[in-house]
């Protein structure tokens, strides 16, 4: 179920293009935050990391979560310029094609999607119809690329580690860090999926933590934490530097890698990794239907 919580609004007067309005949408079954990032000075907005509802047991999809975002965009008279993914998610299906069809906008993801497409194209034995060149997206972003959301400038940091294609989108004073950092009391993302790398994650996190201390960080997931009963989605660079349980200031790269690797060895696969990855590697499109018109996802046996 999708639920919209409080928007993060400008508190003080700032020059145009520096402080987006950020509205989170939470999907509790997958613990995912999607965002609408809005230029306060124009109707322009971007949608990040949307969710397609999925009932794995019955193989059913639904668009309740995406419809909540669509309603918000329409109610506020917004124009969608971008539908962005921070990475190929392993815990939910992307609703990007549905949002794109309904609201327009260009889709974007990291240029290293091609690496992910290659790995999972093989794993799922996808046919030749499945292009592994990222062409399912309108734009493939690389480190340092910039883009506009109205007057806002977006800038791309390549932040691999959780996956090889992970990006952080820095939009004005806000950074959308995907699965790198979680809330300070929860820590960091796992690095044991195909193409993951704990050392790369540490370096990516340092890049994020080198942003100005007051930079607002928006997370892709929250799982609550010991002694915290509420879901949270926003923190700052300064808070992360001071308090992140896995990578606060003073934690060395080697210490982090050891901790991360040991912890990952104890984690089961996410419940939706097999359905998610084969849809998200196609930019959220389903695999082609068989001759009977029916679409099937595939579950590789004894592969992972």
């Amino acid at each position: 179920m999708s639920q919209q919580s409080r928007a993060s609004r400008p508190g003080v007067a700032r020059p145009n293009g520096t402080r987006p309005i950020v509205t989170p949408f939470f999907d509790e079954p997958t613990n995912t935050f999607s965002y609408v990032v809005q230029d306060p000075d124009s109707p322009a907005c971007a949608i990040l990391d949307s969710v397609l509802d999925f009932d794995y047991a019955a193989g059913r999809t639904d668009v309740r979560s995406a419809d909540a975002i669509i309603a918000f965009v329409r109610d506020h008279g917004l124009e969608v310029e971008w539908i962005l993914e921070t990475h190929v998610h392993a815990d939910h299906l992307s609703a990007a094609p549905y949002l794109h069809e309904t609201l327009g906008g260009k889709t974007g993801i990291g240029a290293n999607i091609t690496v992910v497409q290659d790995v999972f194209g093989k794993a799922f034995n996808a046919g030749t119809e499945f292009a592994r060149d990222g062409s399912q997206f309108d734009r493939l972003f690389e480190e340092g690329d910039t883009f506009a959301i109205g007057h806002l400038e977006g800038r791309v940091l390549h932040t691999p580690g959780h996956t090889p294609a992970c990006l952080t989108y820095v939009i004005g004073d806000a950074a959308f860090v995907g699965d790198t950092l979680f809330m300070p009391d929860y820590g960091t993302a796992r690095c044991d999926f195909p193409g993951g790398d704990a050392r790369a994650l540490y370096r990516s996190i340092q890049k994020v933590l080198a942003l100005p201390g007051e930079t607002r960080l928006f997370l892709c997931h929250d799982y609550k934490a010991p002694e915290r009963e509420e879901y949270q989605h926003e923190t700052s660079v300064a808070e992360q530097r001071a308090h992140n349980v896995h990578v606060h200031e003073g934690v060395s790269e080697d210490a982090f890698v050891t901790m991360r690797t040991e912890r990952d060895a104890t984690l089961g696969m996410p419940r939706l990794i097999l359905p998610s990855v084969q849809v998200n590697m196609r930019a959220g499109h389903m695999p082609p239907a068989e001759e009977n018109g029916q679409v099937y996802l595939k579950v590789p046996i004894d592969k992972f």
């Binding site: 059913r60 093989k122 679409v295 595939k298 579950v299 046996i301």
Partner: peptide, 26 residues
């Protein structure tokens, strides 16, 4: 018996999408 392997030697199960209805949403 598991399904027969595909050409790559790997076996796959199939999950039909939006084909089974009636039960409550999981």
């Amino acid at each position: 018996q598991l399904p027969a392997p595909e050409a790559n030697g790997k076996r796959y199960l199939k999950i039909p999408l939006d084909a089974l209805d009636g039960a409550d949403w999981d």
